[in-house]
Simulated assay, not measured.
Amino acid sequence: MQNKIILVTTDSFGTGNDPALGENVMETYFTVLKQQTDLPAAIFFMNRGVYCLTEQSLCSLHLKEIEEKGVKVFGCKTCVDHYNVENELAAGEISGMAHFVELSAQYEVITIA
């Protein structure tokens, strides 16, 4: 995973009739990811994915731990501004699309949509 970045474009993993299930699956994903020894170089959140970085999401707790292990966690500035969540961020740092383009040129991108 060290040669990969994860792009998260939603706050719910998968689609279905129950959004709470998708949020639970997303939290489980980050719970399992943080337990791995081989972690990605970075995780970049766009669109509704930026909600995972907020205090409202249990994902933010796991993402803080992932950051402590050296993984860079970023939230798209345009998306953070659009959803007006800058003051609610509990994990990650704000970054721009140019930074994501740089990362995607250097690393393989795994997308969670």
Rank of each mutant, 00 (worst) to 15 (best):
M1A: 14
M1P: 09
Q2N: 14
K4W: 01
K4Y: 06
I5L: 08
I6Y: 04
I6V: 07
I6S: 02
L7T: 03
V8A: 07
T9M: 13
D11E: 06
S12E: 09
F13K: 09
G14C: 02
G14K: 08
G14N: 03
T15G: 10
G16A: 00
G16S: 00
G16C: 00
N17Q: 07
D18R: 01
P19D: 00
L21G: 04
G22I: 00
E23V: 10
E23D: 07
N24Y: 14
V25K: 14
V25L: 14
V25I: 13
M26S: 02
E27D: 12
E27M: 11
T28E: 10
Y29C: 10
V32Q: 13
L33N: 09
L33W: 08
L33G: 07
K34Q: 14
K34N: 09
K34I: 05
Q35S: 15
Q35F: 09
Q35I: 07
Q36W: 07
Q36S: 11
D38N: 15
L39A: 07
L39R: 06
P40Q: 01
A41F: 11
I43Q: 01
I43E: 00
I43T: 03
F44W: 07
F44H: 04
F45L: 13
M46S: 13
N47G: 04
N47D: 14
N47L: 12
R48A: 13
G49L: 01
L53G: 02
L53A: 06
L53K: 03
T54W: 01
Q56V: 07
Q56E: 11
S57E: 01
L58C: 09
L58N: 15
S60V: 05
L61G: 13
L61K: 14
L61N: 15
H62S: 14
L63E: 00
L63R: 06
L63C: 05
E65L: 11
I66P: 07
E67P: 05
E68V: 04
G70C: 06
V71W: 03
V71D: 01
K72N: 12
V73P: 01
G75R: 01
G75A: 10
G75M: 01
G75C: 03
K77G: 10
K77M: 14
K77C: 08
T78A: 15
C79Q: 02
V80P: 04
Y83S: 10
N84R: 11
V85S: 04
V85Y: 10
V85N: 04
N87W: 02
N87F: 08
E88P: 08
L89D: 03
A90Q: 11
G92C: 07
G92Y: 00
S95V: 05
G96I: 02
M97Q: 10
M97C: 13
M97R: 12
M97L: 15
A98F: 13
A98C: 12
F100M: 05
V101F: 11
E102C: 09
E102R: 12
S104L: 05
Y107N: 01
Y107C: 09
V109A: 08
V109R: 03
I110W: 08
I110S: 12
T111F: 05
T111S: 15
I112F: 12
A113E: 07
